[in-house]
């Protein structure tokens, strides 16, 4: 190899380094991007956010719009001091980013009666503070069981499908349904099955084996009718099953945990409310991370 060729080769190596470092730099986030959360006080409360891949800090506490402050559960950071990309709080990773999760104590949330919307002030363990729109966070009283619905099982799958099944212990009529966050339904397809609903199919006997089968089935084959097409009231006989199946859309980048409520009256005229928990645990593909940056980055 002649000297000239060698010098050109060294030049190419330099350009490759320069170009790649420049591209890497251009992909860096100025500050973490928080997901839009919809927490109605049911289930867990976890904050999800996207950071640069080499970012080792994590959320310490959050000041909500109503002035209350919650401290994050920190029990699992104790022994971790290695690569941030493999920290205990990392849900998903891509070449440039990490999706991280911080958990909070729901009991404490209920005691503080957190009622938040929009911008929150977030403190990180490295001393940084930022404000970000984290969505809606509400706390609610623990619900007492109504004694009419018996849980038959809940199941969820990594493809974004989940369902909840109940059997009813007496004859009843469901009059209406309400959701605290109807906007989340854009991200989520739902189908309700009950014997008296005009349906596309019947779920199998309801044993454990049928769960995995229904989780993989084509959406059109899933038992029940789309939630928005259902005519209330729904009549149910003792021993009937009711199942809510949910399918998250691939471009869904929100975090939620809340209850859809079905209200009605039982045979002897007592009114009841039955919640169906709707929740997810976001895990993002690199494409979803890019989508999040596009939608919520540098607001």
């Amino acid at each position: 190899m002649k000297g000239k060729t060698f010098i050109i080769s060294l030049l190419i190596i330099t350009i490759s380094w320069g170009g790649n470092l420049w591209f890497y730099q251009s992909k860096q986030l100025e500050e973490p991007i928080f997901l839009e959360h919809y927490y109605g006080g049911a289930g867990v409360f976890e904050l999800y956010y996207l950071t640069n891949r080499d970012e080792s800090s994590h959320v310490m506490s959050v000041e909500f719009s109503d002035g209350t402050t919650l401290h994050a559960k920190s029990d699992y950071y104790g022994f971790h001091n290695g690569n941030p990309a493999y920290g205990p709080d990392v849900q998903s990773r891509s070449t440039h980013y990490l999706l991280k999760k911080t958990g909070f104590d729901e009991q404490q949330m209920r005691e503080l009666e957190v009622d938040h919307e929009g911008e929150a002030t977030i403190h990180f363990n490295d001393g940084k503070t930022m404000t970000a729109d984290i969505g809606t966070v509400e706390s609610s009283e623990l619900r007492e069981g109504n004694g009419i619905f018996r849980s038959q099982g809940t199941s969820s799958s990594s493809n974004g499908r989940s369902f909840r099944t109940y059997t009813v212990k007496e004859d009843l009529k469901i009059d209406s349904m309400s959701s605290p966050f109807p906007e989340v339904q854009d991200d989520l397809k739902m189908k309700l099955y009950a014997p008296s609903i005009d349906l596309t199919g019947t779920p199998d006997a309801g044993g454990p084996r049928s769960y995995s089968k229904e989780l993989d089935e084509e959406w059109s084959q899933v038992a029940g009718a789309p939630l928005e097409n259902i005519d209330f009231p729904i009549d149910m006989k003792q021993g009937d099953r009711i199942r809510l199946t949910m399918q998250e859309k691939p471009d869904s980048i929100r975090a939620y945990s809340y209850e859809i409520e079905f209200t009605g009256t039982s045979e002897n005229g007592t009114p009841f409310t039955q919640p169906f928990l709707v929740s997810n645990h976001p895990q993002f593909t690199p494409e979803q991370m890019e989508l999040l940056i596009e939608r919520r980055g540098s607001q």
């Binding site: 190899m1 080769s9 190419i12 190596i13 490759s16 790649n20 470092l21 890497y24 891509s94 070449t95």
Partner: peptide, 24 residues
Amino acid sequence: LFRVYLATHIVYFALLPFSINIPE
């Protein structure tokens, strides 16, 4: 050996920085 040694090293060094921008 000179030819192989040099060519391999140059290719390696030129491709190495791409590793910060493509999946693991």
